[in-house]
Design a protein around this nucleic acid. Structure first.
Length: 776
DNA sequence: TCCAGCCACTTTTTT
DNA sequence: AGTGGCTGGA
């Protein structure tokens, strides 16, 4: 580390190193916070005080007068992280949030495009399509142009478009080799035209349009480069190609990019994240300062040893080893159960014990609050059994994930009405509510309307007069209703607008008549409250999404073109989909996927379903990269725990309505034996398979291949009769695929299938009644 | 046009 | 198992 030298630009580094801001930081953290004005990469391990360093860095830059608030650009991925940063910052110094650019990638791009909507060739009040909206827009387009949904599934097209945009690729730039690829590109182009015509942008477009505007408009780019002396990025390992390119546009020789990330916690490759951006950043920006934060303030060393050992099995890491001053603590407990049901049962018992010990003041042994216990799983489907067990035990719990507030159907409907007031051209919203609540406008009518709009090249809203007969009358009535509402709400405050629109939409009456509609009506009420609190949001929260910004001062521009409160609120709804679940703060066991747990920490953590095919997930097993990402995911799971960590696997598990027989995860074999405590059979030992002897013949015992493990014979009638010898871990021969290893089984009788890993042919699912498998 | 029943799907997710 | 989307009959 070379830290003693002063910066080549900006004020001298003559700031007293004993500034109160730096107190309590370890040497590496201090070094990071007080770095000179140069590009830097901070490799921040789990629990190493990453957010603290990031926020203290900003506070330090401001307090020492090295930069003014308008010169700071700080980017995160989630609204939660952005809020956290702002909260911590304002706790450190009196904060002038005006003109400070702290937010999510998409939030900041939105802000940028609102400020420069003309140059970006967008309507001022452009609306944002979320993932649902985008899919329905594509489906609408499919109908219009008679695209075969069988050959080009809309979901895949959506994925394709998103992936293109994440790579910064417009339709003309796509490399299309065959006819099928050319068709996809054609659809992509049609989709783009449709969005542009309707005045809407999807999430990818927010980023891409911002990037292109910066790239192509020299004056604008230079302005922002001059303005942002410091660019700080959180979770850098999660950035995609486009985000990286965007950062490049915003930085110049006079600015400093401060990237914080952890390559070992990169778990979002499936949505375009490129860990490689870290290495690229070092190379392309000529990064001289790389600081590793390896001091962990979260976990005891048995837990950290496990994490370190596991992740050491990955190749091509930037290299990092967590350490702690806390003692070894308790061993990592490993548990095996016979079924997912039994696993859940066992967990409930263990939780009870933990909480009992915590209450008795038994010090280190227990956990004092249910909030401090988390159950992590690889896939959402696993939560059900656990929920049932917790429910039956009367143990309060909270499940994260699932529908967010602004994604609920009733809310989307209400928002669609509101969006149509703001922008009648928004055909996605038009289609969503044209017949909701039902008003006699069926498929037939809308098809006529769509055809009319298509041939006239106008919006659905403007084509109603072209439809004749009863259908035309109904459509006209609907449009008239919208127009009246628009007139009626003109000049109203946000709350009143929303209240009026909900009242006249017929949504409340519709849901009131429904059996399960009460909650939906409540949610509509909640939307009104949400609007109220949005209005009362002071300063940053609203400015961030709403106001155009003066290019020179960074202050909100008084252009007389201020975005309407309604448009601002709609943007807010699209960019911040709301809390995952209410009940926050209540005393409850926390249930979530490992992905959702990233960034969180708990006293006690249960990682469940540690089985081959589940964790690591079968879909990730085919390639090396996939497996390494699974391992990083496991690393994230382990490092969530402060004091106690449980790793649990089960011999059988209900999945998609069928019992599957799984062998335990290979990750167990990558953990340090000294840190583990086996709560149940298999007995401890480096090779648990040996507990059942070395037999390999059609016997109820596994092979001794290193990563496979022993599976007990299943004492039940559902095991696949004639193929009873086919078990997890057994070596088999297939006439076509050659030698392989059975990974897992599912189904029974005629339906029994085995998942087999073959050397050259990869992993296959084989129906036992068809495939001729012989034991080796 | 609407609703009921059938079929296919099922890793992870933020904006 | 559970859900969401689609088809076909009323």
């Amino acid at each position: 580390m070379s830290l003693s030298t002063g910066p080549s630009t900006g004020p001298p580094n003559a700031i007293p190193p004993d500034s109160p801001l730096l107190l309590g930081l370890n040497p590496e953290q201090r070094a990071a916070v007080a770095l000179p004005r140069e590009h830097a990469l901070i490799l921040a391990g789990a629990g190493s005080g990453k957010t603290r360093v990031l926020t203290t860095r900003i506070a330090w830059l401001l307090q020492t007068g090295q930069i003014s608030p308008a010169g700071v650009l700080a980017v995160t991925f989630t609204n939660k992280a952005a809020k956290e940063m702002l909260n911590r910052l304002s706790a450190m110094l009196p904060l002038n949030v005006r003109g400070m650019w702290i937010g999510t990638f998409h939030g900041l791009c939105n802000r940028f495009l609102r400020a420069h909507w003309k140059q970006a060739q967008l309507p001022q009040s452009f609306q944002i399509l979320d993932t649902q909206d985008q899919l329905s827009a594509i489906k609408r387009l499919y109908k219009q142009y008679s695209v075969d949904d069988e050959r080009f599934p809309a979901k895949q097209t959506q994925w394709f478009i998103a992936a293109c945009k994440e790579d910064g690729v417009r339709p003309p730039d796509v490399q299309a080799r065959d006819a099928e690829a050319r068709k996809k590109v054609e659809i992509y182009q049609l989709y783009e035209d449709q969005c542009q015509r309707e005045g809407v942008v999807d999430f990818g477009e927010l980023m891409l349009r911002s990037y292109e505007l910066l790239r192509d408009n020299d004056a604008l780019r230079e302005h922002y480069q001059r303005r942002f002396g410091h660019v700080l990025i959180d979770e850098f390992q999660d950035t995609n190609r486009l985000q990286y390119a965007w950062i490049k546009q915003l930085s110049s020789s006079s600015s400093a990019v401060f990237a914080v990330g952890d390559d070992d916690q990169s778990i979002y490759a499936f949505r375009g994240a490129r860990v490689g951006n870290m290495a690229d950043f070092v190379r392309e920006f000529g990064v001289r300062h790389q600081i590793k934060l390896e001091q962990n303030y979260r976990s005891h060393s048995h837990i950290l040893d496990s994490a370190n050992e596991l992740i050491s099995h990955n190749k091509g890491r930037l290299g990092k080893n967590l350490r702690t001053d806390q003692g070894p603590g308790e061993p990592v407990r490993v548990h095996e159960s016979t079924s997912d049901f039994a696993e859940a049962q066992w967990m409930v018992e263990e939780m009870r014990q933990l909480l009992r010990d915590g209450q008795n003041g038994d010090g280190s042994q227990g956990v004092h609050s249910r909030n401090e216990i988390a159950v992590l799983y690889r896939s959402n489907a696993q939560s059900r059994v656990i929920e049932t067990a917790l429910f039956n035990a009367g143990m309060p719990y909270r499940v994260y994930g699932g529908l967010r507030f602004f994604e609920r159907a009733e809310i989307k409907h209400a928002l669609a009405y509101l969006r149509l007031l703001e922008n009648p051209r928004d055909d996605t919203s038009f289609m969503r509510v044209v017949n909701f609540p039902p008003r006699g406008i069926g498929t037939r009518s809308t098809e006529q309307l769509q055809d009319a709009a298509h041939s006239a090249g106008c919006a659905l809203h403007d084509a109603v007069s072209a439809v004749s007969g009863k259908a035309g009358a109904n459509l006209s009535a609907f449009v008239a209703k919208l127009d009246v509402l628009r007139e009626q709400t003109h000049g109203m405050g946000l709350r009143d607008i929303i209240e009026t629109v909900i009242a006249h939409s017929g949504l409340v009456e519709h849901y009131q008549a429904e059996r399960e509609g009460a909650e939906r009506v409540e949610n509509l009420q909640e939307l009104i409250s949400a609007a109220e609190s949005f209005v009362s949001l002071e300063g940053f929260g609203r400015d961030a999404v709403a106001l155009p910004v003066d290019m020179d001062t960074g202050e909100p521009a008084d252009t007389g073109e201020t975005l309407s409160p309604l448009a601002a609120f709609l943007t807010h709804a699209a960019l911040e989909s709301g809390e995952n679940q209410a009940l926050a703060g209540s005393e409850a066991i926390q249930l979530m996927t490992v992905h959702a747990a990233k960034g969180l920490e708990f006293d006690a953590v249960f990682v469940t379903g540690m089985e081959e095919g589940l964790f690591p997930h079968e879909n990730a097993l085919s390639d090396h990269q996939g497996l390494e990402e699974e391992r990083r995911l496991m690393y994230v799971a382990i490092t969530r725990a402060r004091k106690r960590l449980y790793l649990s696997h089960s011999q059988t598990r209900m999945l998609h309505g069928q019992t599957r027989y799984n062998i335990r995860s290979r990750f167990f074999d990558e953990l340090p034996e000294h840190a583990l405590k086996w709560l149940s059979s298999p007995a401890p030992g480096l090779n648990p398979a040996s507990a059942w002897g070395p037999s390999r013949e059609p016997a109820p015992v596994s092979s001794s291949t290193d990563w496979t493990a022993a599976i007990k014979p299943l004492a039940n009638a559902s095991s696949p009769g004639a193929h009873a010898w086919v078990r997890g871990g057994v070596q088999v021969f297939h006439h076509k695929f050659g030698e392989g290893t059975v990974l897992s089984l599912e189904g029974s009788g005629e339906d029994a299938r085995a998942q087999v890993k073959f050397g050259r042919h990869g992993i296959k699912w084989l129906a036992l009644s068809v495939a001729k498998l012989t034991p080796i």
